[in-house]
């Protein structure tokens, strides 16, 4: 039997591009700068071992990310890195383009979404481990979750037994109402999460070496994130059922 021990979301590669593979020009450390091309000959470079999603975009690990700026950067890099632009290049360069575009897409997908971005940071900082995420209902929501699941089950049962359309509509309506409630809660939890971004970002600026303070902030965010993913799963399940 296999065991999946962790999700290593860093895009790790063997060689560190201290030199351009083509013209041998020395390159600056990518982790600091988000270098994608040789400054001399312009060739696309392999990913450095330590590149993470933040450094890919030349960012520090701050959670306050300018969404419009990130999208702009994503578009600009797509124009330059996409495999379409390397269709007539050699096999090695084509591979680099594919690998780097995949990393670009992975990084953008993760960083543009506040919850995914937080989760990624928590992994990088080793606060969060795969398979150790609590999937328990938050205690204060137990009653409402129970009710929602009941509505969900009723609708499923009604669909199975081929109930008359009016009864089905009524159940849908109930479920939609419940979804609205939970969507509202989800928005609240997300706001709660993003409110903590400032605390983390300030820490990076003022006390980057204070491990204890960092752990406290990260642990708090981890809790809110668990709550967020629980409610988000609920809303997704309900939406799936409603739209089928």
């Amino acid at each position: 039997m296999m065991d999946r021990i962790a999700t290593e979301k860093q895009t790790a590669r063997v060689t560190s591009p201290l030199q351009c593979w083509e013209c041998r020009t020395a390159l600056a450390d990518e982790q600091e700068n988000g270098i994608h091309f040789c400054s001399q000959c312009g060739k696309v470079q392999p990913l450095a071992t330590k590149t993470d999603y933040f450094s890919f975009f030349g960012l520090t690990r701050k959670l306050g990310v300018d969404a419009a700026q990130l999208e702009k950067q994503f578009h600009q890099l797509s124009w330059k890195l996409h495999p379409d632009k390397f269709n007539n290049a050699g096999a090695y360069e084509r591979d680099l383009s594919l690998e780097r575009t995949a990393a670009l897409n992975d990084a953008y997908r993760t960083l543009r979404d506040p919850a995914a971005r937080t989760e990624y940071l928590l992994r990088l900082e080793e606060v969060r481990k795969e398979g150790k995420v609590k999937q328990q209902a938050p205690p204060d929501l137990l009653e409402e979750v129970f009710e929602l699941n009941e509505h969900l089950e009723e609708l499923r049962a009604a669909k199975r037994s081929g109930s008359d359309p009016r009864a089905l509509d009524e159940q849908r309506h109930q479920l939609e109402k419940a979804r609205g409630t939970f969507q509202h809660k989800l928005d609240q939890v997300l706001a709660e999460l993003t409110n903590q971004f400032a605390a983390w970002d300030a820490l990076l600026d003022t006390r980057p070496g204070d491990a204890a303070a960092k752990r406290t902030v990260l642990a708090r965010m981890n809790e809110v994130l668990n709550r967020h993913s629980y409610i988000r799963n609920l809303v997704t399940n309900v939406s799936d059922e409603l739209e089928q």
Partner: peptide
């Protein structure tokens, strides 16, 4: 994963090319 569950590693509607890395080890 264990028990026949699915661990999603690349979500639908991810821009392609897309990738995911997973770490595996042995059990016995």
């Amino acid at each position: 994963t264990m028990g026949g569950a699915v661990a999603k590693i690349i979500p639908r509607n991810a821009t392609i090319p897309a990738s995911a890395s997973e770490m595996f080890t042995t059990y016995v």
